[in-house]
Design a protein around this nucleic acid. Structure first.
Length: 843
RNA sequence: GCCCCUGUGGCGGAAUGGUAGACGCGGCAGACUCAAAAUCUGUUGCCUUCACGGGCGUGCUGGUUCGAGUCCGGCCAGGGGCACCA
């Protein structure tokens, strides 16, 4: 009897799998394909528990599908561009490229220690010239297809990271990475025309059944479709003003018109009106951060201009510039109907504008119905609205929209909240945008033959600003069109561009084209994608959009890149705080009697709630410390046990110890099994052990199919218990049970499985062994246990032979002592017999 | 403010409308040991009873049903997303 030594066994199997190229996926195979992908990591330095959880889940699916006979693609790469490399360069004086590739080498080694079934021959990093030069080609393709454009716009400027950000990357008015309040700047930048696909991206969500409902809903809200009417006001200064509304039915309740401070007309007015200019400046000073919006009052400036009501030219509405009107949505101008919109009501009360209700709830008298502090937004009938009077809201919308369209005053339109994706970044460590600015020709794409536009390696980080722009020579080039002196675009692409098509590149990472269309046609869509829910909008929306572009360009054959998505929960741990509220690292404390103290002292430390492991909270456990002591199988088993995969899991020492003990227990089960018949011996009969074996096979298969890893784990414990308890089972049944057990743990604890398989006398590999099949006749039992209830309360249980007729079940149930006692001699009012399940006697 | 999700033992969590608490962690008792670790056996929702047994239990509250953790209505608590989007 020997302990199972994971440290000895694990590297051995890993080397053998690699040597036999077990996980190298051919691009042609008679088997059905299965593409399993986990969101690729940013090479920050070392892997963390979140990676371990993510990659363990993906690995289980990949190995399970492989055992089921699929040609499985399970690749790995590196999302390797990004700001941390530049920060390291600035803080430590290293080269971003060296820093990144060093990290990749470290993390690759750590991932290999986990024993992942990955096709390493397809590995790449997005900072490889070979990758980003292909991305530059794609950028030019998208440009040609009209999916990329340059425009001057109000953009989000992160003053700490010194770059602009996309809307999706501004969280609560702050930069997603730096946390600094973003500022607004007017800059010419590159955009991806994601809005061109707004309707498609929205519509497709309804059919993405293997995506979490939550993620689909978040994307739906982010895209934000609303139907309404766009129409034009004639202004007293003989200008025209377009507005958008979703409530055209309330037009006769209008009492003002409002422009965004950023509206072109506001800017025109500011030129001649000092007070208007001052008001606009004031709005801009307050800014658009969350805090500012929370507290900012509705403010307006009466321009003195008036707008003629579309259905009554004599009815003139005052035109204000108002701080709550956003330039980025609709037309940047609205009409205000205070009675039925809260913001309009707040504004009207402040500036003493009329509040005329035009929608009256059922049962209210239109003559007396009034709106107080709250706008009425519910259903009702129109009043005070001329030709709309008496109509319900939806009918009124249709009527007024129809009249406007017939008279050429307006059109029904659909507005989206989604904005185009700003992809320019004023940073160094990213994919250079392959564009040239020529004084005479304007913007000229770099011809594909001149790609790649390579990043220089001699850049300085000790001066603020864009390092590429500051480089002495890099940006100076000649115009590809006229040959005159010209400047390169010194911005790089948002790193989310890099991760928006890597899944397609994995299909053939050596391809001369960005995406090998044949390979992509074979592999895509990804059958199972796994990653954190924090990417619900950003990465997952961008990738869906880019894939639609790829499809349009003929690179891919599918609309949606990820057929199945699974969002796993985070890995959490208790937190500890000292007296000053500072975070205390796990290594600095020790626990005694449920309390925490500084190591070797009596100074108590406050135990805080469990939170996602993070550097800042100092509550992270380094995976390698667990792997070094217990082995990869233990940490993998922990990640799969107990907690459902979509929920946050709490890392505990006791739990890890328990997993390690189970590894040993499984090993002993095999090692101390005693004499077994030779491999291939068939078991027969229907012993308890055989039933337990086949029930486990059926249950674990079902659980893995549905990504219920925690339940699969529980089934495996149950089978292990059954084997341990089956002292007098036949040796053939024992062999069958042990072999099933080993194959079932194969995807989860692959190293232990191989070792145990060998110990059972097998000379093949578990990774080459088909998934076991459950014998249906053994899964079902030949007796049925009925729960016998009286008035819905359990009083007894009783076994009946399978298929016993209802009358017999009823008769014998009534005769049971506890039932008879409850009935107390009286006949039952009613007896319900559910075959195979339950008898309920109503007394 | 709007939208969504989640509430089950000491803990993580099981449970096609049909025996609530599978499985694991932890606890308790015992075996082995000079002792400890490891391992093994038993036990472990709460109340009541010497015992047999009985009662109560899935956030609260009402309903549907022979039967509700599960379905429906109304609350409460925690978490998440969006947020001046016209």
């Amino acid at each position: 009897m020997a302990r199972y030594d994971a440290r000895e066994a694990e590297p051995k199997w890993q080397a053998l799998w690699a040597e036999r190229q077990c996980f190298v996926a051919p691009n042609d195979s008679p088997k059905p394909k299965c593409y399993v992908l986990e969101m690729f990591p940013y090479p920050s330095g070392r892997i963390h528990m979140g990676h371990v959880r993510n990659y363990t889940m993906g690995d289980v699916i990949a190995r399970f599908r492989r055992a089921q006979g699929f040609n499985v693609l399970h690749p790995m790469g590196w999302d390797a561009f990004g700001l941390p490399a530049e920060n390291a360069a600035r803080d430590k004086g290293v080269n971003p490229r060296d820093w990144t590739y060093d990290n990749i080498a470290t993390m690759r080694g750590q991932l290999k220690q986990m024993g992942l079934a990955i096709d390493w021959s397809r590995e790449f990093a997005t900072c490889d010239v070979a990758y980003y030069s292909q991305q530059q080609k794609l950028f030019l393709d998208f440009y040609q297809a009209g999916l990329v454009y340059r425009a001057e716009a109000d953009v989000n400027w992160d003053p700490v990271d010194m770059t602009v950000l996309a809307n999706e990357q501004v969280i609560d008015g702050r930069g997603w990475r730096s946390g600094a309040p973003v500022e607004r700047k007017k800059l010419a930048q590159w955009f991806f025309r994601i809005t061109a696909y707004a309707d498609e991206l929205l519509e497709a969500l309804d059919h993405m059944e293997r995506w979490p409902e939550k993620v689909r809903l978040m994307q739906k809200n982010w895209i934000g479709r609303s139907e309404g009417l766009r129409f034009t006001f004639d202004l007293s200064n003989s200008e025209k003003l377009d507005v958008f509304t979703t409530r055209p039915d309330t037009l006769f309740g209008a009492s003002f018109v409002a422009l965004s401070p950023d509206h072109p007309l506001s800017e025109v007015l500011a030129k001649t009106d000092k007070r208007a200019a001052a008001f606009i400046a004031e709005c801009q000073r307050i800014g658009t951060t969350e805090a500012a919006i929370e507290t900012a009052e509705k403010m307006g400036f009466d321009t003195g201009i008036t707008a003629a009501h579309p259905f009554d030219p004599a009815w003139q509405l005052p035109v204000y510039i108002a701080n709550f009107v956003l330039m980025g949505y609709g037309t940047g101008a609205i009409f205000g109907c205070p009675a039925h919109d809260q913001r309009d009501l707040d504004f009207a009360r402040k500036y003493k504008l009329p509040v005329l209700p035009v929608v009256v709830p059922e049962g209210e008298d239109p003559k007396v119905f009034e709106v107080g502090a709250e706008a009425y937004t519910g259903p009702g009938r129109l009043a005070n609205s001329r030709f709309l009077d008496g109509l319900e809201v939806e009918a009124a919308k249709a009527e007024i929209a129809g009249r406007m369209e017939a008279q050429g005053k307006g059109t029904r339109t659909v507005q989206y909240r989604l904005r185009d994706w700003l992809v320019s970044r004023q940073r160094y460590w990213g994919c250079p945008i392959p564009m040239v600015h020529c004084p005479t020709c304007g913007i000229v794409p770099v011809p594909k033959g001149q790609l790649p536009v390579e990043l220089p390696s001699d850049v300085r980080f000790d001066v603020p600003g864009n390092p590429l722009d500051a480089h002495p020579t890099w940006k100076h080039t000649t115009c590809p069109k006229c040959g005159a002196k010209a400047l390169r675009d010194t911005d790089t692409l948002d790193t989310f561009v890099d991760s928006s098509w890597y899944f397609a590149r994995f299909c053939n990472p050596k391809s001369e084209a960005p995406v090998d269309a044949d390979a992509a046609k074979y592999w895509l869509p990804v059958d199972q994608y796994i990653g954190g829910v924090e990417h619900a909008i950003l990465h997952l929306l961008y990738a869906r959009f880019v894939n639609r572009g790829l499809h349009k360009l003929g690179y891919t054959a599918v609309d949606e890149p990820f057929a199945g998505l699974f969002t796993q929960g985070m890995v959490c741990h208790e937190t500890y705080k000292g007296h000053n509220g500072e975070w205390i690292a796990i290594e600095e404390i020790e626990k005694r009697n449920g309390k925490a103290y500084f190591k070797g002292s009596d100074t108590e430390v406050t135990i805080g709630r469990s939170e996602a492991m993070s550097k800042s909270k100092k509550n992270g456990i380094a995976p390698e410390t667990i792997i070094d002591v217990h082995g990869a199988d233990t940490i993998r088993w922990f990640m799969l046990s107990d907690t459902p995969p979509e929920r946050d899991i709490e890392w505990t020492n006791d739990g890890a110890e328990g997993c390690s003990r189970f590894v040993q227990r499984l090993w002993r089960l095999v090692d101390e099994a005693g004499e077994l018949p030779p491999p291939g011996t068939k078991a027969d009969g229907a012993s308890e052990l055989r039933r337990a074996t086949h029930r486990a096979i059926a249950a674990v298969t079902d659980d893995l199919e549905n990504l219920r890893f925690n339940r699969g784990v529980a089934q495996i414990y149950t089978l292990a218990n059954a084997i341990a308890d089956a002292k007098d089972a036949s040796v053939a049944a024992k062999r069958e049970a042990l072999e099933a057990l080993v194959l079932l743990i194969g995807p989860m604890m692959p190293h232990l499985a191989e070792t145990a398989w060998q110990a059972l006398g097998r000379d093949t590999l578990v990774v080459d062994t088909p998934w076991p099949k459950a014998d249906a006749s053994l899964v079902a039992s030949d007796t049925e246990t009925y729960a016998i209830q009286v008035n819905g309360k359990l009083r007894a249980t009783r076994q009946f032979a399978k298929g016993t007729d209802k009358a017999t079940v009823e008769k014998e149930s009534l005769a049971l002592e506890p039932v008879a006692r409850m009935l107390d001699g009286k006949p039952p009012k009613r007896v319900i017999v559910v075959p195979g399940r339950i008898v309920n006697i109503v007394a």
